[in-house]
Nucleic acid binder design. Structure first.
Lengths: 218, 218
DNA sequence: GTCTATAGTCTGATAGAC
DNA sequence: GTCTATCAGACTATAGAC
């Protein structure tokens, strides 16, 4: 196994969403794969590494997953399902005000990338390792999740609540800065996920030219 | 070689800075490695893949580089050297105004990540594959390059020209959105690098709470 | 410097007993 | 479902001729 001094991801805690059932050899394999894929990458993790760390025999792993690639695909699917669920839920709980909706999406995006940073790193950095067949359904999920922010941005622009030079660039800036949180956030830094999420929500509002909320209650 | 439907990086054009001498087998190897590492990752590219695509025999490659890892290290070193050079140069050409300096750094960061997007992708996504020995000098370079933005942000805060909630978070947001440009920029999109760079420089100024420049001349 | 050929190791995945 | 044992091929890197 490789020796590295720099870690791709700052966080160390396990984080699979509660939806994922982690019982038995299959659960240990998924949880261990999440750690190793986040740390070493899919290509940098051998089936032997994975099985040894998960205390699972190779043949047992292949009783649960047809190929190593299917393990990755399941993790990335979990990642986008959880993100989409959280984003949609946050929209449902916010008012119809475009700025409130933008704040809700960015806050949730950042909070989710703090709590499930390993999932987010694997989903964004290892997606391209999947074959077309396994990637296709994931790309559908990904497009759905990204569509939520696009809709809010476009609706805010139509209602003249946002003064964006360009919706695409604002989208890329906001999603980019949020995505990177998964790579540098760690529980031992001097900020809580809530502080980061609030700051980034403010940044997003400034990027799109929305006035800062005068009060807590929108 | 793997078949993938999703590309990690949108750009396709070769881009090694002019400093890199690309003559002969060594040059072909470096140039080809840049493409393959950006597209497939370091772990997803075999020496055979690389040599075949570069029209270089394995034994010839090993006459120029001690290991496959040294090829990656050279590319990442080139990436950070070029970025550091460009950022420092842009600071020298800007005025002493913190906002002008911030704009210069962000513009240069984005322009460099458009022009050398493959280098930036490899440098950010494959750095963790290096062993400690090869990574150490690169981390020094990386810290130097990042320090330029930190200094500008702190100086602007001291002079009360920036109204940041938190310098670290602003830094992470600005560098994160700029870094991601390398992954999605392609020459065929509907924006020029200059447009993207100008927009992102505006975003950065808004993030740190600097007033928008009233005119072109700072 | 570049070639042909291959050493030695590790890879993903499987066969077959229990 | 889990085990032991292993296949067939791919991997990084090298030896030695020219």
């Amino acid at each position: 196994m490789r020796k590295t001094s720099h870690r791709r991801i700052a966080a160390t805690a396990t984080a699979l969403p509660p939806q994922a059932k982690l019982k038995g050899a299959r659960g240990r394999a998924l949880d261990t794969a999440l750690h190793l894929f986040a740390e070493k990458g899919f290509g940098g993790t051998s089936v032997r590494d994975l099985c040894q760390a998960a205390n699972v025999q190779p043949a047992t792993l292949y009783a649960h997953f047809p190929t190593k690639e299917h393990v990755l695909a399941e993790l990335i699917t979990l990642a986008y399902e959880e993100l989409y669920r959280a984003l949609r839920s946050s929209l449902l709980e916010s008012s119809s005000d475009p700025e409130a909706q933008l704040r809700a999406l960015v806050k949730t995006h950042v909070l989710s990338h703090c709590e499930y940073s390993m999932l987010a790193v694997v989903a964004s950095a290892e997606l391209h390792m999947l074959s077309a067949d396994l990637m296709a359904p994931i790309l559908t999920l990904k497009t759905q999740a990204e569509g939520l922010l696009i809709e809010v941005l476009e609706r805010g622009a139509e209602k003249k609540r946002f003064a964006m030079d360009d919706a695409l660039l604002a989208l890329k800036a906001i999603s980019g800065m949020g995505l990177r949180v998964a790579f540098w956030y760690a529980p031992d830094i001097n900020k809580t996920p809530e502080q980061i999420a609030d700051s980034f929500a403010n940044y997003a509002c400034r990027i799109v030219g929305a006035a800062a909320a005068p009060n807590d209650s929108q």
